[in-house]
C-alpha cells in the first residue's frame, strides 16, 4: 500500500493513509487541525489502512477537493515530523526537568533520580547546540552584533 492516496469526489475527498507510515495518533492530530472548516469521518483499521473522508462545511470556498486532500496530507507530514522530533528530544527534556527540580530542591532528589548522569547530559546538550537552527530573520543574532554597540549618552 502506498503511504497516502487521495480520491477527490464532487463534494468530498477521501484520503487513505498507511498506518505504518502515519500512525493513528498522527492522523488524529492532523484531523483536529481541520475540525473547524471540514466535516471529518474516520474509517478503516488502525493496523492496515485508515480512510479519512473530508467534506467542506462551507461549499462556497474556492479550494478544490484535491487541494483539501493535499493540505491534509501536508498536515500528516507535519505531525509525523513533530512526533519524531519529540521522541528524539525526550531524553534531553527529561534531563532538563530533572536538573531544574534538583537545582530548586536538592533534598527532594531521591536515590532513583540520582541516576542522573551529568556527563551524558552535557554530551546531549553539546549535540543539541551543534544542531543547525534555521534563523532566516537573524533573530538569534545579538543586537550589538547586528547593529553595532549603541553610543552611551
Amino acid at each position: 500500500m502506498e503511504s497516502t492516496q487521495i480520491k477527490a469526489d464532487t463534494d468530498s475527498v477521501t484520503v487513505t493513509v498507511n498506518p505504518k507510515v502515519y500512525p493513528i495518533e498522527t492522523v488524529y492530530s492532523a484531523a483536529y487541525v481541520f475540525l473547524d472548516s471540514l466535516y471529518i469521518l474516520l474509517d478503516g483499521d488502525p493496523e492496515t489502512g485508515i480512510s479519512v473522508k473530508l467534506t467542506p462545511k462551507n461549499k462556497t470556498g474556492n479550494d478544490t477537493m484535491e487541494k483539501i486532500g493535499m493540505e491534509f496530507a501536508n498536515e500528516l507530514i507535519n505531525y509525523a515530523d513533530y512526533r519524531e522530533r519529540a521522541k528524539d528530544s525526550r531524553k534531553i527534556r527529561e534531563m532538563l526537568l530533572q536538573r531544574a527540580l534538583f537545582t530548586n530542591d536538592p533534598a527532594s532528589f531521591t536515590s532513583k533520580e540520582a541516576d542522573f548522569d551529568e556527563e551524558e547530559f552535557n554530551t546531549l546538550m553539546k549535540e543539541l547546540e551543534k544542531e543547525e537552527i534555521e534563523d532566516p530573520d537573524d533573530i538569534a543574532v545579538p543586537w550589538e552584533e547586528k547593529y553595532g554597540k549603541k553610543d552611551s549618552a
Binding site: 493513528i24 495518533e25 488524529y28 484531523a31 483536529y32 475540525l35 466535516y39 471529518i40 469521518l41 474516520l42 467534506t55
Partner: peptide, 18 residues
C-alpha cells in the same frame, strides 16, 4: 450527523484519548 462526528473527535482530543 457530521457535526456529531466532529464533536466526538473533539471530545476524544480534550479527554486525552487520541
Amino acid at each position: 450527523h457530521m457535526e456529531f462526528a466532529n464533536y466526538v473527535l473533539g471530545l476524544m482530543k480534550n479527554n486525552g484519548i487520541a
